[in-house]
């Protein structure tokens, strides 16, 4: 999210990517930044508390880790989710999402006697998969929290500059239409 390129207004950019501390703009690297923010209501987040951001950050990193290609944290996905929930969701849905996050963590405590962030990675993966499996197998009028989370995380990543141009392929102006070319000539899923 290079703010120079984006053309979004400066205040908005700052809200999205960094902090004002004593009048000096601190532009953090995304990875690990929010892990450092612990107290609830920390400046720099729109909606989530420090501990909620910590949990979300770990969940994002687990779902789409940095491998040979960038991951969710490289693309600033936790901040994207914070903004989406804090700015776009209705107050009701914000509360529901926060409650979902809490029950997700409570579930981890129930199953492993430890909060999610303190589990080792294999247990985190196992737990996230089991919660997803339950959600996929349960017919529910409202989409389960974990599926909303996966949607937000995938959207934030796949439509980010990093995600769209690494794991996926992106081109704003293709210039031509080829309806059925060999897949290898494209090579990856189109981001849009």
């Amino acid at each position: 999210m290079d703010t120079k390129k984006t053309g979004i207004n400066r205040r908005e950019a700052i809200k999205r990517t960094g902090l004002w501390v004593g009048g000096i703009f601190i532009a953090p690297a995304f990875a690990g930044f929010f892990k450092g923010c612990t107290p609830a209501g920390t400046q720099g987040t729109v909606f989530f508390s420090g501990s909620q951001m910590e949990l979300l950050t770990r969940m994002c990193d687990l779902l789409i880790p940095s491998t040979a290609t960038p991951g969710a944290l490289d693309a600033g996905v936790p901040a994207f989710i914070d903004r989406m929930v804090g700015e776009v969701y209705s107050p009701d849905n914000r509360t529901k999402f926060a409650e979902g996050l809490t029950s997700f963590d409570d579930g981890a405590v129930g199953a492993y006697s430890k909060p999610f962030t303190e589990l080792d990675e294999s247990n985190q993966i196992q737990y996230m998969k089991s919660v997803t499996e339950t959600a996929l197998n349960t017919y529910n009028e409202e989409l389960a929290f974990i599926l909303i989370f996966r949607d937000l995380c995938l959207t934030g990543f796949c439509l980010s500059e990093q995600g769209a141009n690494s794991l996926l392929r992106y081109m704003q102006t293709p210039g031509k239409y080829e309806p059925c070319m060999p897949f290898e000539e494209v090579g990856k899923t189109w981001a849009t």
Binding site: K5, G7, F80, M84, E87, V88, A164
Partner: peptide
């Protein structure tokens, strides 16, 4: 670009 449009191109609540 998609990443230049805040909040996945959605308007705020």
């Amino acid at each position: 670009e998609p990443w230049e449009l805040p909040n996945n191109d959605k308007i705020s609540y």
